[in-house]
Nucleic acid binder design. Sequence first.
DNA 1: CTTTATAACTTTGATAAACAAAGTACTTTC
DNA 2: GAAAGTACTTTGTTTATCAAAGTTATAAAG
Lengths: 100, 100
Amino acid sequence: MKISLDQFDKAFENRIRLQIMSVLVANESYDFNSLKELLDLTDGNLASHLKALEKEEYMQVQKSFIGRKPNTRYLVTEKGRAAFKRHLQALENLIKQQKK
Amino acid sequence: MKISLDQFDKAFENRIRLQIMSVLVANESYDFNSLKELLDLTDGNLASHLKALEKEEYMQVQKSFIGRKPNTRYLVTEKGRAAFKRHLQALENLIKQQKK
DNA sequence: CTTTATAACTTTGATAAACAAAGTACTTTC
DNA sequence: GAAAGTACTTTGTTTATCAAAGTTATAAAG
């Protein structure tokens, strides 16, 4: 009997980072403030989780101005997308094992 | 767009506890040493994760003797089984969202 | 009967992660 | 010019994780 969580990614172990990835994979891009509201986080907490994902090169930043206001958008890299897919696959295998 | 990780259980955020639950739900019961070998953990580490699950009342202990050797078996409680199911459901929803 | 071994922890201590709150720098709206 | 918004960074506290060593109890070996 295997448990097969070898594809499990430490970067996605945290609930918030799982949520961030989930939103970003589904939405192509999302800005800082919308993400903050959606997940109900403080600035610092969100920023640090985003930074952790950036460090893994799973996340990319795009800075621009909307009118004269700064706007920071985040998007998942190809690497991030692949890693997240692998991670979800590992979880799916776990779920399948439970079901049979 | 909902992210719906409200069913997400903090007790299962850790990879090892996720593995323990996975094994225990599938196997009805498992003893300390077999679990230790299967997951390749030190005594202390395994014991503390099991204790965390016991504290949540997700896990139960059965002490007995096999021959004259002590044997400690762990089993999932009904509460634990239900909580784990909810947790996997939340993960499954996440996966489904990604797929569509 | 003493050393060695096994089981199942508990304790210790060190490192890392998570988080809120406050601070920063710059801009803009009132 | 005061208040508020954006996007952080810094600080400090609390919690989590883990290996390693210590503990207690029994048992087998020499």
